[in-house]
Design a protein around this nucleic acid. Structure first.
Lengths: 358, 358
DNA sequence: CTGAAAGCGCTTACAG
DNA sequence: CTGAAAGCGCTTACAG
């Protein structure tokens, strides 16, 4: 059954396949199975052109010997590595780590590894840097997280060099099977409903930089949902922050100087919401008695502030997993990934405005 | 000068090297330079056995054509990839991201890429997982961050399979050229000096899990330095936390119930220090008027709490860079990496105890 | 359904 | 100091 075939020129080792799990090659398997290495290759690559019993025999053998094809050899022959790149430009460490862990979840068992490429999208030549990153190691694909995912110049470059990619963004910006859409807008709508339900009418909004899609979506969704409920914010109640803690402090100081003072402030990320808390405490205001505060992101900060912060959680890890799976899919099996939805996490930082409390 | 040599069997492309920077091969360079591919290979690998003018000619050509050797082909021939792995088991996202960025700094321009491998050191088979990770992609090396860096079973496995490694830990645990030593103890000593200089004598300490080397070093250094200054903490003033926010709250509640109440609490990480703040506010205590608080790590949390937290900063990014550089060094150029030192970041959470204020 | 030949882009002995 | 041959562990045409 497992008669030894005459060795090919390439297989000149007299030893049996190494006991060590990682060291046997396609030649060992072929010899042991009594088939050509090409047939083993077909089994590895799930070609349908293999007789079922041959396939089973080869698979059993690979399992028994603990054989795993060498990704570098396969990569050299395929002209494509077994590496997936994560290209990011995001200062939120928890976001990055969650995304990485999700991607790793999606890659587990596939033989692919995750290689990371943080970059500075404000630098002029960052696109050239990504290009080198992709080309030099012949990456199998990359996924882009906000805000680089919103940069069409970057995506154009990837298309030009024929690199597979997936984009994670607040709304769909590309063909559906290339997108993980995070629907930030829906999260902001939840906040509007919640604050409205508590009875807030005099509300301040701290937006993010308008060049961020997420900021436009969150802010737009919030204002629109309030308007639909008959609540209109005056122009002085909407201030633009920079998604940073310091900008949150500064914007909150402006909002809290208004008369009458807003009873609630929605900051479009937790960093700025923490800044709102700092500004409020400095003024001697209590949260939530004197001011309700809502953030967005559910960063570690949110649960560790005192009082803990009501915020919106995006399933980031799941998004990373979906992005990784999307990149592994066959070119011909293009399908739209499942929807991902944000949800409101209610903690301690909100209550009805005192004047209107029943 | 650049006469075309007869083509070898392997180089059967009639086209000139592709205009695209990534697509030319060692054969193109050899042909253009009028030398054998072996000589080009020697130039790539910085072999001294090349005549200076030959080397210069080849290097100029590589530069001009934008030739970069294919890491997969080199890897296959070397039996070793151009991938460095980061093995970690640390819930602190900022720590992980800083470490990654530092490693990337150290790898930049070297042709190596960083592949990440977070794992769960509490799971029984995590070592087998790391083994597969290293063997399957034939990693050039890995670096271990706390707490996996402290696991001798993991290191034994790496030695057994002949994998290069670097360890990052609070004290030296291995040959000096394999270690980045973080000297956490020194940071804790700084805290002791600072609190003593403010006049605190009744101090509470929230330690970390004793199985963590960092916790033993930080706690030990703190107590020893205080003792050297004539300040002795009673057994009830030292409680063991779990490095988590919740454990910080719980431990602080115990400490703040003591009579007389401690005037300062040192928590061995910022997570727990944030918990101390929460517990204090709940009891109506003001920070720093009624209680001074010090943390460790300088996490993003520290600067965003109100009042902002005095803490200890470790140069994590620099440590990552040093670890990456260490792994690239030639086997024969073993040298001890430079020392890395923590330092105290003084913010708003401490002042002299009120009873003793001048 | 299966296989022998040639090749992916490099390197390691081995000669000179 | 330099090069021709063989090989790293896979795959892609091309035959059968």
């Amino acid at each position: 059954m497992t008669t030894r075939r005459p060795r090919t020129a390439a297989s000149d080792t007299a030893d049996p396949p190494a006991a060590d799990g990682g060291a046997s090659t396609i030649n060992d398997i072929a010899r042991l199975a009594g088939v050509s290495k090409k047939t083993v290759s077909r089994v590895i690559n799930r070609s349908p052109l293999v007789r079922p019993d041959t396939r089973e025999k080869v698979e059993a053998l690979m399992e028994k010997v603990g054989y795993v094809p060498d990704p570098m050899a396969r990569g050299l022959a395929f002209r494509k590595s077994f590496l997936i790149g994560m290209v990011s430009d995001n200062p939120n460490a928890q976001y990055i780590v969650n995304m990485q862990n999700g991607a790793l979840d999606g890659l587990r068992g596939s033989g692919y590894e995750l290689v990371v490429h943080p970059c500075d999208s404000k630098s002029a030549d960052y696109i050239a840097g990504v290009r080198r990153f992709v080309l030099q190691h012949r990456l199998a694909g990359v996924f882009l997280v906000p805000r680089v995912s919103e940069d069409e110049a970057l995506v154009d470059m990837l298309r030009e060099i024929g690199c597979r990619y997936a984009r994670i963004a607040a709304v769909s910006l590309d063909e559906p099977w290339r997108m993980i859409t995070t629907n930030d807008r829906d999260g902001a709508v939840e906040v509007a409903k919640y604050l409205d339900s508590l009875g807030h009418r005099n509300i301040g909004l701290i937006t993010g930089p308008t060049r961020y899609l997420s900021a436009r979506e969150r802010g737009g969704g919030f204002l629109e949902a309030l308007r639909a409920r008959g609540v209109e914010l005056g122009a002085d109640h909407v201030v633009e922050g920079g998604y940073t803690f310091e900008s949150g402090v500064a914007c909150a100081e402006r909002l809290l100087a208004l008369t009458p003072r807003p009873t609630a402030i929605f900051a479009l990320n937790d960093e700025m919401a923490a800044g709102v808390c700092k500004a409020a405490f400095r003024l001697g205001l209590r949260i939530p008695e004197d001011l309700s505060v809502v953030g967005f992101d559910d960063s570690p900060l949110a649960s560790r502030l005192w009082p803990s912060l009501t915020t919106v959680r995006l399933p980031i890890r799941e998004m990373g997993m979906l992005a990784a799976q999307l990149l592994q899919r066959e070119e011909n099996r293009k399908q739209t990934p499942p929807l991902v939805t944000p949800h409101l996490v209610i903690r301690e930082s909100c209550q009805p405005p005192v004047a209107e409390r029943r």
